[in-house]
Amino acid sequence: MAIRIPAVAGSTPGDPDGAPAVVAHDLYRFYRAGGEETLALRGVSLTVRAGEVVAVTGPSGSGKSTLLALLAGLDEPDGGHVDLGGSRMSHRPEAERTLLRRRLVGVLRQSGNLIEHLDVQANVGLVQALRGRRTVPRRSVAELLELVSLSARSRALPGELSGGELARAGLAVALAGDPAVLIADEPTGELDLANERRLLSLLREVAAGGAAIVVASHSSEVADAADRVLPMADGRWVDAGEPVAA
């Protein structure tokens, strides 16, 4: 099943698959704790086109999560900038980033993707409702759950789902707002192999529908499923070259 994504602002009409959905330029990010300064990112650039799946790999602490947070507009870079679908995401007030994020970005994490007191369909519905009444969701809640094969579990609470179901429900939530960019941080970290493969094939379907996907993982399965694999270590790409093109 192919999933269509609406044309992203700034992308060329008629050429959705080729437009750069994500552009990150020379990102820096520092953290300070216990009198020690950590350079989480040191000059990372990245371009992801619509329909492309990019895997960022590397050991824990290599800066993957920091990069993803910056791409999603959840955090602000200390240097460099992030553009999503032609709109500047970084260096904006929090409120504006929030509005951009809800229009353009879906976020999927290893765990904690769902509000625990809401059932699966309510979780998906909530994210659609957050976008406001005027924005008609392209896919209904039922369609999204159908997509991730959770129609039968729509009334289940997060606590009642298995690990694989939780991950797929998280994906349904991340897709609820019709994102042009899907940011996934270790989405398969807690899954067994079968469930991992199932989720990855779903991600491929989403990408085929026109979404740009950036997934951070240290799983080899994820790397295998990606169009491009970008290893990261100590806050920079392992290959010194510019990993812009596939």
């Binding site: 959840l74 809800r102 904690g112 509000i115």
Partner: peptide, 19 residues
């Protein structure tokens, strides 16, 4: 702590201050 987790999740999904 649970409230703060929930709020962080809502913000990730683009909830505004008002929401």
């Amino acid at each position: 702590q649970r409230r703060q987790r929930e709020q962080a999740l809502l913000r990730t999904h683009g909830a505004t201050h008002r929401q």
